[in-house]
């Protein structure tokens, strides 16, 4: 099937280019944007700032779209952002059971597993079994909330700052923040 899709998409692209509907330079620009420029390092900087700047953290939790824009991130699939802060009491996990809604400006394009039927079907029903697939076990006493992105609201999970990182600067902290931790399928 993969080979058939390659031929099918190649034919589709040549039809759309020949008809004047899309330009090859625009296609290259879009691919470069999402393969090189926009990705989870953006979200990691947001998280690191919220760990180090309490006023920024408050703005992030009250109006995430504006707070994320302060760091220069925004655009398609990030129009209505909400930040969810993990605490010792509550762990957040994000999904889109209906399709693949995901906060592109801060996390880039979603990983394959986020779009997979396995994740979308099971994480709302039994999220701890999904976390187990990632090798993650939540501490005893931490409740779990799954956020199904059924509208144009997009979620960024703010993981808990790891212990022993008091001496690290913002850049070093950002390097600790993983994509999966900002979806809720990893702990730091």
């Amino acid at each position: 099937m993969a080979e058939d899709m390659a031929e099918r998409v190649e034919a589709l692209e040549s039809i759309l280019v020949e008809k004047g509907y899309v330009r090859p330079d625009a296609l290259e620009e879009i691919i470069a944007t999402y393969e090189q420029d926009v990705g989870p390092r953006n979200g990691a900087r947001v998280v690191a700032r919220s760990w180090t700047d309490p006023a920024y953290r408050d703005r992030l939790l009250s109006d995430a779209t504006a707070a994320i824009a302060e760091l220069g991130y925004g655009g398609r699939q990030g129009e209505h952002m909400v930040a969810l802060e993990n605490t010792p009491d509550e762990h957040h996990v994000v999904v889109c059971t209906l399709c693949s809604c995901y906060p592109w400006p801060v996390l880039g394009l979603p990983p394959t597993w986020y779009k997979s039927p396995a994740y979308r079907s099971r994480v709302v029903l039994d999220p701890r079994s999904v976390l187990a697939d990632f090798g993650v076990t939540l501490p005893e006493g931490t409740r779990i909330t799954v956020h199904d992105s059924t509208a144009e609201v997009r979620y960024l999970v703010v993981p808990m700052r790891p212990a022993g990182t008091e001496d690290l600067d913002e850049e070093a902290l950002a390097a600790l923040v993983t994509r999966d931790a900002m979806i809720g399928t990893a702990l730091l």
């Binding site: 990705g39 990983p111 394959t112 997979s116 396995a118 099971r122 994480v123 697939d133 399928t185």
Partner: peptide
């Protein structure tokens, strides 16, 4: 649908 397969960033 089976297990969820993690993927590198």
């Amino acid at each position: 649908f089976g297990r969820v397969v993690p993927e590198p960033e």
